[in-house]
Structures are given as C-alpha cells and as structure tokens.
Simulated scan of single mutants.
Amino acid sequence: MVIIGVHGIRCYRYFTQAGTVAGATEALAAEWAAALGLPAGHDALRAAYYAPLLHLGATQGPDDPELLPRTAQGLLVEWVSALGAPAEVTMGPGTLPVRQAVGWIAERFGETAKRFAVLFCREVDTYVTDPASPHRASVQEEVRGVLAREQPRVVIAHSLGSVVAYETLWHHPVELDLLITLGSPLGLPNVIFDRLSLGEGNEGRKGLRPPGVRRWVNIADVGDIVAQPRDLPGRFPGIDAHHEVALGLVASHRATQYLARTEVAAELARLT
C-alpha cells in the first residue's frame, strides 16, 4: 500500500540540510514513516515535496511581521481575528494591526507561536493570495506528478499541505481509498476557505469530498492554532470522520506528533 505524504510549512529546512530536492524528499519521507511506526527502509511512504517552490529567498526578511507583504499582513490579522482576538487588536491605521496581532499571539501562545505565525502567513500568502500564481500552479503540478507516478491508495496531508492536496485533488482527480488531513487550516474564513480554488465548474462544490476519494478523515489538536475552526466538518460536509486529539501545547502542530496518533494507525489498518 503506497502512501503519499504532503507536508506543510517550515519544510524548506530539509532542502537546506540535504542540498538536493531528492535528498530532502527522502529525508522527509523517512521522518514521516518513522512517526507512523513503519520499519526503517520501508518504502511504502513517499513524499510530495514542494517547499522550494514557495521559498522566496532572502527577500522575505527575518521574522518581522512588518516585513511581510501587505497581503500576508492582511492574512495575519484575519487569522488572529479567527482565533478570537478582540477588535481593538485587529483594527487600526497603518501597520498597527499587524504589530498588535503578533503581540496578542505572543502573549497568549508564547514567542515560539509568534515566530511560527509570521512564517505561516508568509508561506500561505505565497500559495493562496493569487489563484493564478505560478507558485500555486507549480506546487499543484508537483503533487499531481507524484500522485500520477506513485498511484497511492492513501494521501496524508498536514497543515498547508491539506490545502495543496485538497485543491490538487479537485483539479487533477485520482482514485484514493483514503485522504487524511492533519492540523488543517482549510476552514479558516477569509484566510483559506474563501480563497480556495477548485477549478472551472467546481466552485460550488467547495467543502465536498474531492472526486475519486472514497473516505476523508480529519484530525485536529484541540490547541492547534492552525486547525481553525476546530469543527471543520461544519464547513466541509465531505469529511467522513473527524477526530479531536490532545497533543500538548508545544507539539500541537507538529506533523510527526499527528502521525503517531492511534487514530491514524486505525484508519490505515482499515485498508489492510
């Protein structure tokens, strides 16, 4: 049974460490396979690795929210609003809202979450802001190519990868026994949900299970600030099973922690 893993943000580091896309892909797949409990050297899990296609280089600047593109700053403010920040945090002239937004995140979730938020909004903005973006098209083409070549039974998609996988499976349908989304931001209003692009003739099907997918399972940590809103089936009736889990605040968005959950193992066991 072939499984394809579609990663989320913060994965360019695999390329930095490995030096090649092939090496990065192999390292990511090995890490995910280990988290699933597959034996070392097991090749059932392969990765669709697209991180370099969203990496804009040094021009992105350090983890300073005011150096984000205006569109990414807007996404950050919208996201913080969805997390429950009061209006006084998300309203104001100039760059005041984005400064207040990251300050609110740091106060509520810690400095690590603040840095994560800036990186998340940078990568999400690069992918979702323009439906006709060459970055968006190239990422989907990479995933499409992997799916066509490997012909998996299962796709496991984490974080932004769930958005990539969902759109790709609408634009380029394939037969899958199982789609598992982990820590998915698919339902985030304004930030993600309203920007989804499913292809010509499919816009009215937003929220449905992608064609060709027999079962869709979503898993979200109760403290995951990316997996918002937590009741994803409320926006996506195509989800067949939804599990809320508790990974712990520090690990609440890590792919490996999600992959190690018994709920993932149980869903995979149904197919064997």
Rank of each mutant, 00 (worst) to 15 (best):
Q257I: 01
T126F: 09
T16D: 14
A265Y: 02
G238F: 00
P52V: 11
A157T: 15
V89P: 04
L45H: 04
R46T: 12
C121H: 05
C11K: 12
S81D: 15
E141C: 06
R144I: 06
L119Q: 11
V118R: 02
E107R: 10
I180S: 09
G161V: 05
L182K: 05
V2S: 12
R153M: 05
L119S: 09
E263N: 11
I219E: 00
L75A: 12
L67V: 07
Q73H: 08
D130K: 02
G92A: 07
H253N: 03
D64Y: 06
I225E: 03
A22W: 12
E31R: 11
R136Q: 11
L83D: 04
P173S: 01
V155G: 04
I9A: 06
H135M: 11
I239D: 04
A72F: 06
I3F: 04
A251D: 15
A227N: 03
A18P: 04
L76A: 08
R10C: 14
I4V: 14
L28F: 15
Q257L: 13
L45Y: 10
A47W: 09
D221T: 00
A113L: 09
T90K: 06
V146R: 10
P233E: 05
Q140C: 14
A255N: 07
H242R: 03
V98Q: 11
D231Q: 02
R261S: 10
A87W: 14
L76K: 02
P237Q: 13
T90C: 06
P39Y: 08
E66W: 00
Q228V: 12
